Amino acid sequence: MATEVVPPIRRSLVVPLSQADAFDLFVRRLADWWPLATISLGRLEAASCHIEPSIGGRVFERARDGTEALWGTVVAWDAPWRLAFTWHPGRAPASAQEVEVRFVEVLAAQTRVEVVHRGWERAGERAAPMRARHDEGWQAILARFEALSRGETAPPEPREPGGCGG
């Protein structure tokens, strides 16, 4: 039986930051805007999340007790233009999707951030429902990123656990 192609999630937003600052906020300040209490493996025990800044670097969360859980691995690092990483929090790397984030300068202090989350076919029968959960998750995640980019307090975390884990 052939695996059905599941379309990628595509999200785009414009933030009032330079390309370098948008990249920096996304990568180096990930824990400032990522909704860890609802979109993580550890939920309320998750203390921070990180992207190691090089190809082969880890994308991971750290719990309050110091334990770490792998979310994925950096596969492209072209600062400040592009970042890509595998995505398999709580799952085997063989089932990973890929997240690509591009930072396109619109004006000197305005950048379009484009997120493409693809490779759902690797999840087999779970692909369509998993994609639907992640689509909702990215909406909440990027709303927090956008608010912080504007100097606002990030919106509250989603009430229900989102879909970026498992």
Rank of each mutant, 00 (worst) to 15 (best):
8 P>S: 15
110 Q>D: 10
21 D>N: 15
84 A>Q: 03
110 Q>I: 05
158 P>C: 09
37 A>F: 07
34 W>P: 10
146 E>V: 12
141 I>S: 01
94 A>Q: 13
1 M>R: 14
126 R>E: 07
49 C>F: 02
79 A>E: 15
108 A>K: 09
154 A>H: 01
133 R>A: 10
61 E>K: 03
1 M>V: 15
90 G>R: 00
147 A>T: 09
83 L>C: 01
115 V>Y: 01
101 V>P: 10
40 S>V: 00
4 E>F: 11
154 A>K: 10
116 V>L: 01
13 L>Q: 07
87 W>C: 03
146 E>Y: 06
19 Q>G: 04
107 L>Y: 08
105 E>I: 08
44 L>Y: 07
164 C>I: 02
24 D>F: 07
153 T>Y: 11
147 A>N: 07
127 A>T: 04
144 R>H: 08
137 G>P: 00
80 P>W: 02
135 D>Y: 00
96 A>C: 06
78 D>T: 11
6 V>S: 05
42 G>I: 12
166 G>V: 08
95 S>L: 14
17 L>D: 02
124 G>K: 04
85 F>C: 01
108 A>Q: 12
147 A>I: 10
42 G>N: 11
157 E>A: 15
111 T>W: 12
117 H>W: 13
141 I>F: 04
47 A>M: 04
131 R>L: 02
91 R>S: 11
78 D>A: 12
121 E>A: 14
84 A>K: 01
23 F>R: 13
18 S>Q: 11
5 V>C: 07
97 Q>W: 00
12 S>F: 08
12 S>C: 05
79 A>G: 11
112 R>L: 10
110 Q>S: 13
29 R>A: 09
106 V>K: 15
2 A>Y: 15
143 A>Q: 13
79 A>Q: 14
88 H>T: 03
155 P>F: 01
53 P>M: 14
109 A>S: 13
7 P>D: 03
137 G>W: 08
126 R>Y: 13
119 G>I: 09
146 E>C: 13
101 V>H: 03
153 T>K: 15
119 G>M: 10
118 R>P: 00
94 A>F: 04
65 D>C: 04
30 L>S: 09
107 L>Q: 14
127 A>D: 05
17 L>C: 12
26 F>Q: 03
70 L>K: 05
115 V>E: 01
92 A>M: 14
53 P>F: 15
119 G>Y: 06
78 D>G: 06
51 I>A: 00
74 V>A: 00
62 R>T: 08
15 V>G: 06
46 A>M: 08
24 D>W: 00
91 R>I: 01
35 P>N: 06
123 A>C: 04
131 R>C: 03
67 T>Y: 05
87 W>G: 06
118 R>V: 09
106 V>D: 06
41 L>I: 12
101 V>N: 01
121 E>K: 12
124 G>E: 05
28 R>W: 12
45 E>A: 12
145 F>E: 00
52 E>F: 04
114 E>P: 03
